[in-house]
Design a protein around this nucleic acid. Structure first.
Lengths: 265, 265
DNA sequence: CATAAACGTACACAAACACGCACGAATACG
DNA sequence: CGTATTCGTGCGTGTTTGTGTACGTTTATG
């Protein structure tokens, strides 16, 4: 393939702009990662990095590049324990997504992390009721974004209520990420808020498969509002530390359990 | 084909205007793509691009052209650009809001500044199609927020299209802030993008009063898509530097003109 | 110290490009 | 009314630019 610019592809300058943006928001970029996300060969990525470094816009390191020590602050914030764990979960969850799928992503900080971890240039369509998730995806590229409207609940950070429910019924998704719920191997999926649970229920119904991403404290927990039975949940993403027994309890009931990588740094 | 003007064809200037518009709405154009869409040879397109670049209206790159990095710098930067000027405008615009009103706020960096300048604890309801505006208000307190759903245009930074239009029709607002448009004392309000303008038009219709907040470059400017006549605009907020004559042209036609305080910065 | 991944360089190829030219149409002018 | 001029266009020419591949070198890691 020796074509400089193909219809759906990125121009070199666009790619470099994209790299700089990632550099700012993530604090680091890796060549192989960029190659996959920007649909270019590692060689082209390396060429870009070389140019950017020559312009003094980044610092090259073995494996990728770092910002010019300017935007270290966001990286430090990211180092927070909770955030590190969520990042690992999010990465695992994002890895379940396949080319061209339609994703239904609920509001919530864990789901926001998942959205941030989604690969670009895979022709993904994201339907969400959360402004922060929509905003994060706008600032990246290559996503078809569908916003669910309605009255916003400030505590949830997204639209809920009848209007949202109604809009949701016009959507069919492949994969659904209902936000923070409690999940129990015997009784299924539970939510804490009435209206919120109603919406999550509708999301599960509107999707082919459902992925539950659960921090450890949500495992084996019950709550007041029933969202779905366990056989409506196809995937469960848990933290690395979750023991074999706990995982087996779910996989025995037909749920595919995915364990996140141990939080690196 | 060597005829300058053939019945169905575009004049060079028309073509260039068309290119600029695409550049605005898509964030990039490619020579081959334009050639197909505008029914011209790539050579002509390249000539156009060369001229536009010479005029400083775009940046040429191998394969096509990009907006002048200022315009393309996704929201985050654009927001930070003319903060001083926009802040002054936003403050003035926010001062027009009265207790308990329902506001209809379009997407755009200026409008985001207005939303940020809105007073809390006034029982305001904000209806918006922009995730960033919704998010900013969630993080404050005392606002009732209604999100308009629909497909999101990444360059506009908000929902547009048929779905959004439909949802909008279920809303009545007191005050409307259509985002960055061109305004002319003779012909009224104009927009740059077709779908975007359609939405703005609907916003104006759904509101009791309309407030146009215009940076100086938008005054007396025309564009391709008509949004509203001048008698549908009740308020115009302009920068401090705008001269008496320009202001009089509007106030003579029944528009209340508000001048922002001089930018402090 | 062995090994694999990441890196840089050199090269070939195709797309995109700039330039010059000729043609057709509209306009200007005697 | 005929001729000259101007302008935009398409086509051929050679050049530039970005990309992938191949191969040797450097770097991190156990």
């Amino acid at each position: 393939m020796a074509r400089p610019t193909r219809p759906g592809e990125l121009l070199p300058q666009e790619r470099q702009r994209e790299i700089l943006q990632r550099l700012r928001s993530r604090g680091r970029v890796m060549a192989a990662e960029l190659a996959a996300e920007l649909a270019a060969s590692e060689d082209s990525i390396r060429r870009d990095l070389r140019e950017l470094a020559a312009q003094g816009l980044c610092r090259r390191v073995y494996g990728g590049a770092l910002p010019l020590s300017a935007a270290v602050a966001p990286l430090k914030q990211r180092r927070g324990e909770q955030v590190g764990r969520k990042l690992a979960l999010a990465r695992k969850a994002a890895s379940l997504v396949r080319e061209g799928q339609v994703l239904l992503i609920d509001a919530g900080s864990t789901n926001a992390a998942i959205a941030a971890a989604l690969p670009e240039r895979m022709g993904l369509t994201v339907v969400t009721n959360a402004p922060d998730i929509a905003l994060a995806l706008i600032e990246r590229e290559g996503f078809e974004i569908l916003l669910l409207g309605g009255r916003i609940d400030p505590h949830i950070g997204g639209a809920v209520g009848a209007q949202t429910l109604k809009e949701l019924q016009r959507v069919r998704a492949d994969l659904c990420f209902p936000g923070a719920c409690a999940i129990d191997a015997g009784t299924g999926l539970w939510g804490f808020d009435s209206e919120e649970s109603l919406l999550k229920r509708a999301m599960v119904e509107a999707s082919g498969e459902t992925v539950v991403v659960a921090t450890s404290d949500k495992l084996g927990m019950l709550a007041t509002h029933r969202i779905a039975a366990l056989d409506e949940v196809q995937h469960l993403v848990v933290e690395h530390a979750v023991g074999r027994q706990a995982r087996a309890a779910f996989s025995a009931r037909g749920v595919r359990v995915h364990r996140a990588e141990p939080a690196a740094d």
